[in-house]
Design a protein around this nucleic acid. Structure first.
Lengths: 290, 290
DNA sequence: TGCGAACATCGCAAAAAGCGATTTAATTTG
DNA sequence: CAAATTAAATCGCTTTTTGCGATGTTCGCA
């Protein structure tokens, strides 16, 4: 059984048609047809039910499908294992929450890039859910996300601990005062952001629900909005630099159970970490000890 | 990366040379060379150190090697999974101890063959060590061997329990009497047989060591030798049919701790059992309940 | 009954694989 | 020290496979 036939099969199954698979695989439909038919001939079973709508998996196809993805992943891992001699090299693609990137990663990435000049670093930001999705799809080798994470396919190592604070315009002297305003809004980084849910919980516990939201793409915009008294937000306390603290926004302390948030680094259990990733993780650990 | 190149690589690594691999793979040496070189080119690393003596793995090759075998096994399993629709079919190749085959398997195999006429049954006999080796090599889907078996790669399910008896010519009235003879010999099925070690332990506990051995290939020959007072042997009590019991050989009872032996069915944990095997195991269980 | 959307088939050209002979390199042996 | 040996690399050739584009076929639907 040829691995490329198997990959073709996988694409057809995933996309639901040979034509579509051909487009994804940069080839022509007749070629895909031929590969699928050869695979079927080799196995002696039909893998797809063809119809004018496309191709749907037969039970045999369903049984084969998980192997197609596993073989693909295994071949990929094999090639990385053979290439990787322990010296970090190649491309390291990791993900991070926006806030974690801003707060923790700059010095880390700088020192890492300096120590391992042979590594091309790629950092993608997103929400916890997005990042986890990408890690599961093997688009990212790992990601810093909002913990805790429990998932059978993922290994999570606690990496940072943040203390969140409620931010408001400076003219409110307490959390309670900041939450008085009738037209209070939640200022959030983006839909699905991990801290948004936390913020809603914090407010719900104070009897405030159903607030309108303001969503911005950058931290600066968020802080600007809070400074302009458009609403409140929840962010790591230490994220508020001297340029913002005190004069332009006020950080209200929350009790630890509400404020504590753990950032964990997740990666697929079944994917062997590249040397570049191992080196990165040891950098994280080193940083923690300081 | 092509799976067949990987298989070629594996053969070269295992056999220590491209020429030898070519012979095993039924092709020519230049072909093997080409495949290995292509693999090396694709990975960008040397996999072998060539010398006049053959080819030895480089560190990169060492890292790749386990993947080569895993990919091979996975492709194999994929093809079986796709083919196997739950109806037992194809070839079921299992192993068994000679004694277990004689004592337990005949009715089992007969009823199984009858119930699943689509399955070609292949039964190989051997010693526990041989059978386990073959199961590990995937030459057998599973085997009945002398338990207990603890091995990280094997799953073992207890299947039968035998009571062993010391067999002698009929003119000895007790174990002690049978062991009196100065030129006593151990009559054993073959070198490495599981019961041989047990027999030696039984005798050692009675102060008898270093006996000569007589080795025969068949149970009939063994019983004949014992009947002719050439020596003693250790066999499952129930194995001695009416044709032999009493008149021609005498079975001496041993205490349970010495007599009890468990036959377990072992198979590779990482190999998904075929439907044929699952059906077989359910036959075994059914038999046990009777 | 013709149209559209899908897969199947066909013929051809290009690419790759496979083979056997030969070359090269490194030992071992006489 | 040269010849023989052994194993891998290379080469030229033939055969096979692949990939492509065009065409054919099927089937549901307007």
């Amino acid at each position: 059984m040829d691995a490329r036939d198997l990959a073709t099969f996988e694409a057809v199954a995933r996309l639901g048609g040979m034509g579509r698979a051909a487009r994804e695989l940069n080839t022509v439909q007749s070629n895909v047809t031929q590969r699928v038919r050869r695979l079927e001939a080799a196995l002696g079973v039909a893998l797809f039910e063809r119809s004018r709508a496309g191709a749907r998996l037969t039970p045999a196809g369903e049984r084969l499908m998980p192997y197609a993805t596993r073989v693909d992943a295994l071949l990929d891992e094999a090639s990385r294992a053979a290439r990787d001699d322990g010296a970090p090299r190649g491309t390291l693609t990791i993900g991070s929450l926006e806030t974690t990137a801003a707060l923790r990663l700059s010095p880390l990435l700088a020192s890492y890039a300096h120590a391992h000049s042979g590594v091309d670093l790629v950092l993608r930001t997103g929400t916890t859910a997005e990042l986890i999705e990408r890690v599961l799809n093997r688009e990212l080798e790992g990601a810093f996300v909002c913990g805790p994470v429990v998932h059978p396919q993922l290994a999570a190592v606690p990496s940072f601990e943040e203390e969140l604070a409620l931010l408001s315009a400076p003219n409110y002297s307490s959390v309670a005062a900041a939450l008085q305003r009738p037209d209070l809004r939640l200022v959030i980084l983006r839909a699905g952001c991990s801290y948004r849910q936390r913020l809603e919980e914090v407010l719900a516990r104070r009897g405030i629900v159903g607030l309108r939201r303001l969503e911005f793409g950058t931290l600066e915009a968020i802080l600007g909005a809070v400074a302009a008294d458009l609403g409140v937000t929840l962010l790591p306390r230490t994220l508020i630099g001297p340029a913002w603290r005190g004069a332009r926004v006020r950080a209200h302390q929350l009790k630890p159970s509400e404020a504590r948030v753990q950032t964990v680094f997740v990666r697929r259990r079944d994917m062997l970490p590249s040397s570049a990733l191992l080196a990165f993780q040891s950098h994280v650990t080193k940083q923690q000890r300081r």
